[in-house]
Every structure is written in structure tokens, then in C-alpha cells.
Design a protein around this nucleic acid. Sequence first.
DNA 1: AACAGTTGCAACCGCATCGGG
DNA 2: GCCCGATGCGGTTGCAACTGT
Length: 331
Amino acid sequence: MRKPEPSGKNNSNNKLRKGLWSPEEDDKLMNYMLNNGQGCWSDVARNAGLQRCGKSCRLRWINYLRPDLKRGAFSPQEEELIIHLHSLLGNRWSQIAARLPGRTDNEIKNFWNSTIKKRLKNLSSTPSPNTSDSSSDAMEALNINPACRQDSGMLSMYMDSSPTSMQSQWNNIHRAPLPVLEHGLNVFGANGYLNSSSQCMTQMGIIGGCDGFFGDHNNGGGGGGGVLLGVADNIGAEGELFVPPLETEESFKSERSIHGRNCNNGNYFNTSTNTNNVVAKINNSDNVKSENLAGGVESCFQDDQDQLIIGDWDFEDLMKDVSSFPFLDFQ
DNA sequence: AACAGTTGCAACCGCATCGGG
DNA sequence: GCCCGATGCGGTTGCAACTGT
């Protein structure tokens, strides 16, 4: 944290403030954003009467003021998901955050660096006496569900999940049975395997009841900041979860060029590599609306060449089975 | 109680990318 | 194609709060 600059100091000139945000500044930004929505950030800063740069306003909004933010400690399930996603994505915090709605990249990054990394370090410095089952012990210490303690190269990725390591592990992981979360929900699709075909790694899609995960507790789980596949207006009275798909292998290798902007800018949660297809808008109110659905659900996993990248994952089947999905209790 | 060391996390910084002119 | 402002991302910093001695 940084000391807030004395407010009087910069009022006399046009110098921009830095450091901690005061409650007054927060109020100004919050009110402006709620009344006007997101625009050009430098305009936001100016029009809201803040002596901050647009960048600073954006950061404050995204990391702290956004109404859809989930506060509080990470649940074991979230932790597990973070560990797994990090093993797949490396330090792509924004992409990991995109799959943990209500959490920010900064939050996840801090959590990783302060908590998980340390735990991994401790693990590696205190090897189990039973060396034959050290991976199991590590999984234990990492609180990984026994169901995913498989000899699939996963552990080494937890221990060394640099992008380089990721690449080298690719052949292992994308053919490996994938972890099952605590409640038995395989987040990687019906068959539990990543598809090793050229276009498809995308198997991950959950729509499961998880009351409160997105919901606004104060409003009965109306879904403040809920993120969903835009199928119908105001989905998620009980708070529904859609964990967006991971990228294709190709996009894994060049994610920036494919995703570019708007992956998750705080107001829009883009579930697609094609921004014209499905964009679920996170409203500031309790309602979650979908818009720009002309492309239909089926097209939401098409790449720029209109090729389906959804692979074996059958959305219709998934939708059919939604009711049977177990809870993903992230509370 | 006082001090030192550690931790958690908000915020900054620099760079890459995008899009409009 | 180039320039420039806006935006997004990941790494890093620095301080308040916490913990140990």
C-alpha cells in the first residue's frame, strides 16, 4: 500500500494524486460509474472530479469498487481451481480471473504469490518420508481432491507451472484424465478428457447451481455481477455459474492475438474469442442481462474462421444435463 | 510494552496491444 | 504504414497489520 498524498497538496495544481484512495474518492468514482457507466477512463477521471489518472481509476474500479466483486477469503474449491488453472495457463492472471467470477486478477495473483507459492515452496523443501508417494502427499497438502491424484504430470506442473513447463507438459496434460472438483463435478466436460485433436482443448463448461457464488446475498441471490452464458434475460435467480472454456491449444500459444481486449473488462465478460457472438453484460444492478446474442449459443465457441472449437463438448447435451450438475459450492 | 520480522494486499510501473486518425 | 492515446496485463513495490520475541 502506498501513502495517500495529502489532499491539499495537489489540489492547488493539476498534478494527479497517487497512493491510497480516500473514501471520498471511492464515492465519487462509484457514483460516477453507477450513473454513467464505463467510458473512456481519462474522461471518467475528469468528469467524476477525481485528480487521478484514468488508469488509476480503472484499477480502483476493477479491483475494488466493482459491485460484482466477491469479497473475502478464497474457498478451498476456488483455491483448487486456481491451482489447476495456473497449471494450465501459467501466470495468465486475467485468464484465471476470468474463470473465477467475482475475483480479480490482482487478487488471484496476490493470493498465489503470498499463499499458494509459499505452500508449494514449503512442500518442496520438506519432502515426504515416503518418497514413493510424494505426489500424493503434495496433493494432500495442496488440498487437491484425491480424485485427481493421478499420474498425469499434474503434480510437476503444480510444482513448476511456468509457461515453459506448461508447454513441455502439454502432451501429458491434454491427454490426461482431468481433476474432479470436490463435489464430483468434472469441470472439463462430460468425458473428463481434454480432446487432443488439433482444434480442441475446450471442454470446460459448467452451468451449475451455486447459490451465492455470483449472487448478491443481500438481494436473495439475484446475481449481482453474475456471469453466465447469455441464454435468457435475468438468468441465475439462484446464481448460476458458467466457467468459460479454456482456450484452444492454438490460442494457448497466442492468446493475446486472439483475445486482445475485452476478455474481462469489468463490465463485459466475453465468453468467446469472437466478440460478436456472446457477450454477457454484467449489469450494475442485480439483474444480469445478456445482449448481442444473435450468433446464438452454438456459435459462441467458434473461432475467427467459424470453426467450432468446442470439440466433443456438446452444448445441447450439457444444457440438457444442467439440472443434474452437482453444486459447485464456492462459498 | 517495545521492537523486529513477516505477511497480505492495494496500488504503481512498464510494456504490449489495439484502434482511430 | 505511422503515430498516439487508451486499455489491459503481469511484475513489483511499499506500507499497514499482524506475529513473534
